[in-house]
């Protein structure tokens, strides 16, 4: 881990950062963590090469206190709880598509009030845990779009919960329709490339920034490709005294159009091309978590996926340039916000 500030000096700012962030775990430690109690089991019906279970397992295995999971409708929900089976070894609640954050609010408050009232095991018929974490998983459809209001409300109310968006950049559960997270010019089944169309013609919503605007203690952008970074962010999120939000890039081999074995590699390329910067915002302070030494052009990432195939045609060169310009612009903006604070894993 390197911690530097704008001057490159280890000063008080660095010390603050070190205090606020959990220690980065070694790969060995992470491997041991995976061997522990399996809070999320195999046997579910998510696709081969799907990044979502990778992310869920990493997240749950990082938490060593009792957890309740609230899950928005989506791939993860539908593929992991086909009655009478479940892949979850933790209490799990699904309450529709658009309101996972609202349902989580109720769960979080109920645990607090039951505890405060000192409701006994005899009264309740079960022992209340001393401490419990409410973790929400929702896809980009359930978070960027239909669930945005419920998320915003729950963030604003300050519930102590961690919302994790697995962003696969479209409505993948229903077969790849565009969402507010779909990047410009991507082909989806509702923004098909055709004689009169070049894919999605609009920008992507910056959900991470929307979460930051709620002034919550911890917001981060992560990727399934950066395991140590993701695990550290989960730990930081759980420590936050209030709501925390993680936006995790989660490639979808079916929707994006690549070989299932390339999931992690493609997620990594998104970071290395600066399409998906890794950063965190702790109590309003931005820190960059990946500073690619030799950033690759965004075309390196786009060309791995069928949804962008049309952009590689010579006649669409200008579109590719435009996309690169956008990525550069966003990167510069982020650098300015970070003011030189870099915390790389």
């Amino acid at each position: 881990m390197t911690v530097t500030n704008s001057n490159g000096n280890a000063d008080s700012a660095t010390a603050t950062i070190t205090r606020a962030v959990p220690r980065v775990k070694t790969l060995k430690e992470l491997a041991a963590q995976e061997e522990r109690e399996k809070r999320f089991q195999g046997g579910h019906s998510l696709c081969a090469g799907c990044s979502i279970p990778v992310m869920v397992r990493s997240v749950l295995n990082t938490i060593d206190i009792p957890v309740v999971v609230v899950n928005a409708t989506g791939c993860l929900e539908v593929a992991t709880t086909r009655y009478p089976t479940t892949a979850w070894n933790v209490p799990w609640l699904h309450v529709a598509f658009e309101n996972a954050a609202a349902a989580a609010s109720g769960v979080e408050v109920a645990f607090r009030v039951l505890k405060r009232k000192g409701r006994t095991a005899q009264e309740l018929g079960f022992e209340l845990p001393g401490e419990v974490r409410v973790v929400v998983f929702g896809g980009d459809g359930g978070t960027y779009d239909i669930g945005l209001q419920a998320l915003s409300g729950a963030l604003e109310r300050g519930h102590r919960f961690t919302y994790i968006c697995y962003d696969n950049e479209a409505y993948m559960n229903t077969g790849n329709q565009r969402s507010g997270a779909t990047p410009p010019l991507a082909h989806t089944t509702t923004t098909p490339v055709g004689r009169e169309s070049l894919g999605k013609l609009q920008q992507r919503k910056d959900l991470t920034e929307i979460a930051v605007a709620h002034h919550v203690p911890y917001v981060a952008q992560a990727s399934i490709s950066h395991w140590q970074d993701l695990v550290r962010k989960v730990e930081a999120a759980l420590r936050a005294d209030g709501p925390s939000f993680l936006n995790v890039l989660a490639p979808c081999q079916r929707g994006w159009g690549y070989e299932p074995c390339l999931t992690v590699e493609i997620a990594r390329l998104a970071v290395e091309t600066r399409f998906w910067p890794l950063y965190e915002v702790v109590e309003g302070e931005y820190r960059l978590n990946a500073l690619p030494k030799k950033p690759k052009p965004v075309s390196e990432w786009l060309k791995t996926q069928k949804r962008f195939a049309h952009l590689l045609k010579p006649e669409n060169r200008h579109l590719l340039d435009e996309l690169q310009l956008q990525v550069d612009r966003e990167w510069e903006k982020l650098l300015r916000r970070c003011e030189g604070r870099v915390l790389e894993v």
């Binding site: 309740v68 609230v70 609640l93 309450v95 529709a96 658009e98 309101n99 954050a101 609202a102 349902a103 989580a104 609010s105 109720g106 769960v107 979080e108 408050v109 109920a110 645990f111 607090r112 009030v113 039951l114 405060r116 009232k117 409701r119 309740l124 079960f126 209001q149 419920a150 915003s152 409300g153 604003e156 109310r157």
Partner: peptide
Amino acid sequence: NAKFIKVESEHSAMAACIGASATGA
């Protein structure tokens, strides 16, 4: 001795009640 969640919509009001009731409150 209760907690009142001032939700941002009625839809969320019922969703929060569902979460709370599922927790045992």
